[in-house]
């Protein structure tokens, strides 16, 4: 089973709200002192892939589209024991729209070649569009299953068949699929990403990473660099949050609780 796993490097989603800032163009967040990390669902996906490989063998190629810094994400994937790593360098728009990303990743997947399974995270912790997997599938003309948390493979070669479990709103579904296909991975208790062994981190620092430019993968480089043919962020704002707790008012306990109940109902109805 040859697996290509798409990984995204994002701004640390756990930075405190007070440290979160938006740039003057009001279109993207300022990095500041925060770190860049691998998107957690991508790591869940990698973990799922690693476990699948442990059972069925095969090869895992980690693929990223991003700036030079995304090398860290790929090195971590190698330390977690992905077999190979490919970085498509993004020298254009820092946050291209999901179609652009999918186009690039699909082109890279084609260039890598023989592949039974393309995996992505269900969404990213920064922009969280939740579209990349589906759009890659369309670009490649493959079927797609979303919110997958477990994959089993049976059979070999042309007889290969995948059993894919995915989460739904109120439970789960088991799907049977013929590779090649695209899956997007969500988290469950079994695909918590492993912590790489220090020994493997040391080894991964010396492993080669294949780097391709946009021109090398045969996409419309100018359009990709512009990165917003699909959609465009026209504004980014920090929602005004009333940080101060509003203590419910009322002269009597009963009134206060009445007001409390009102607020509770208000919030639950808005969900």
């Amino acid at each position: 089973m040859n697996i290509i796993i798409c990984l995204k490097q994002i701004l640390d989603p756990e930075i405190p709200v007070r440290d979160f800032r938006i740039g003057p163009d009001k279109r993207e967040a300022v990095r500041g002192n925060a770190n860049l990390v691998t998107n957690i669902f991508c790591e869940n996906a990698l973990e799922t892939a690693l476990q699948l490989r442990e059972r069925t063998g095969g090869k895992i190629t980690a693929l990223a589209f991003g700036a030079e810094s995304a090398e860290d994400t790929l090195r971590k994937a190698l330390a977690m024991k992905a077999d190979e790593a490919v970085l498509v360098l993004n020298d254009g728009h820092p946050h291209p729209d999901p179609f652009t990303v999918a186009q690039v990743l699909a082109a890279a997947v084609r260039k890598i070649g023989a592949c039974d399974l393309v995996m992505t995270g269900r969404e990213s912790g920064d922009w969280g569009s939740g579209q990349t997997g589906g759009l890659i599938a369309e670009e490649l003309g493959l079927p797609c299953i979303s919110f997958v948390d477990h994959i089993e493979a049976r059979g070999e070669g042309t007889d290969a068949s995948l059993f894919v479990k995915r989460q739904t709103d109120n439970g789960w579904e088991l799907l049977n699929a013929q590779p090649p296909l695209v899956v997007t991975i969500t988290n469950n208790e079994f695909n918590v990403p492993r912590i790489p062994k220090t020994r493997d981190i040391m080894i991964s620092a010396r492993q080669p990473i294949t780097k391709w430019t946009l021109e090398e993968i045969g996409v419309n480089a100018a359009e990709v660099r512009a990165g917003q043919s699909y959609y465009e962020v026209v504004d980014l704002a920090i929602p005004a949050k009333d940080v101060a707790c509003q203590f419910v008012s009322g002269d009597t306990l009963e009134q206060k609780v009445e007001n409390l109940a009102q607020r509770v109902i208000e919030v639950t109805r808005s969900l």
Binding site: V192, R194, I195, P196, K197, T198, R199
Partner: peptide, 9 residues
């Protein structure tokens, strides 16, 4: 920790 990556969650 470093050779086995085996430590409490």
């Amino acid at each position: 920790v470093m050779e086995e990556s085996d430590f409490p969650d």
